[in-house]
Amino acid sequence: MNTTPRWARPGRAFGDVALAVVLAAVLVATAVALATSWGGYYWAFGIAVGAVVSGLALLRRRNRFVLAIAALAVTGTAIVVARIVGLPEEPAPATALALAVLVASGVRRLPTAEATAVAGGGLAVVAGSWLAAVPFLLAPSPVSAVCGVSWLTAVAAGLGGRLLVARREAAVERVRRDERLAVARELHDVVAHHITGMVVQAQAAQIVAARGPGEAARIAESLAGIEVAGSEALTSLRRVVGLLRDADDASPVAPGPESLSALVHRFGDRGPDVRLHLSDDAAAWPTEVTTAVYRVVQESLTNITRHAPQARTVTVDVRHVPDGLTVEVSDDAPHAGVRAARALDTGSGYGLVGMQERVVSLGGTLRAGPRPGAGWSVVATLPLAAEELR
């Protein structure tokens, strides 16, 4: 099956036509030169060998390894026959050029073992041409020198192309990995937060319902909260799906300072009292910093909901420091019971890992742990200078 992109096929076809024209011109020039210097039909053998190897070079994409080995075998045989019969020295220039194309193509595209075999076969042809020269001299003949230069050029071109392909594939893999991490963070940070809120509201509704039929209003309030959280989760899922399908289809994913206030307000409606201290110039922060601040606060509040239900007060403090911006989320829950489980969870939970990756990618730092006496805190420091965010 042809895996060449459709847009690249005309360029390859043009390259093959140009190569065919060059090989044909070299064959004709070689035939004329041999007919003039040697006379008779001494040129016929070399031109026939050159035509065969040139044809294999033009067909190289069908099976690079087999055709390269076949061309090397034909050339090696031609060197031996020319030495025994007393014909002009091989390989002729057209043959050397065609071999160079096959060697370069094989070194660039074939697996390591096969590429090494093709390059080694080319070196054997160079050595054979030098050893078969009549008379034999320590210094290579002009034909052997041309063959050696062609082989060196082919190997260098093949290795260069192979390196470019490897770098391109590595770059593509890095982009894919970064995209997977970004989507994973969005799914965890956004969707998990809303689903956690739905679970808490549902648990609250069950507790209120157990108290008696007179709590209908509070049950309705919890159900309304579940509906809102579910709608937000669906919106977040659609946004992430848009990111996966096409970045142009996705809605903006950079929450502003007003979104941070709304997040804290929603949390306070269904959990402990939350105090937000937000710097006055929040609207001027870079987009990536605004998003990182929102995600750190969101994940920290989600962790409080999961692991610190005894917390009565939560403080969210976003302020300027000499080195940039500091985000601190702290609570006053006791260190016993679920707090111990929470401490264990932070070592392997994806939430802390996601926060760490996001903050570190911006040149910042993150630390999380128990506070003296009681409570838990998450502190992230982010740079605001543009050169530090690159």
Rank of each mutant, 00 (worst) to 15 (best):
R295I: 07
R275P: 02
A224F: 04
L260K: 01
I219T: 12
S236H: 10
P286I: 07
L223K: 08
V253P: 01
V253S: 12
L243Q: 13
G268D: 03
E227R: 06
R275Y: 02
R266Y: 08
P257C: 13
G230V: 02
L278D: 05
S261E: 14
E258K: 10
L237D: 00
E221D: 15
R245N: 08
S279H: 11
R239H: 05
V297D: 01
P252L: 05
G256R: 08
V240Q: 01
R238K: 09
D273N: 11
L278H: 04
E221N: 10
L234C: 10
L234F: 11
W285V: 04
S279T: 15
S222R: 13
E227L: 05
A292E: 03
G230M: 03
L260N: 03
A220K: 00
D281W: 05
D280K: 03
L278P: 08
R245P: 03
A250H: 08
V296K: 03
Q298S: 12
D249R: 12
A220I: 01
L263Y: 06
V293G: 04
A254M: 09
S259H: 09
R270P: 00
S236E: 12
S222P: 01
E232Y: 04
L237I: 14
F267W: 09
R238V: 11
A284T: 10
H277G: 08
T291F: 02
I219P: 04
L237G: 03
G271V: 05
T287G: 10
E232N: 09
G268W: 01
D269P: 01
G268N: 00
T291K: 04
D280T: 03
A262D: 14
A284N: 04
R295C: 10
V253D: 13
D281L: 11
L234T: 13
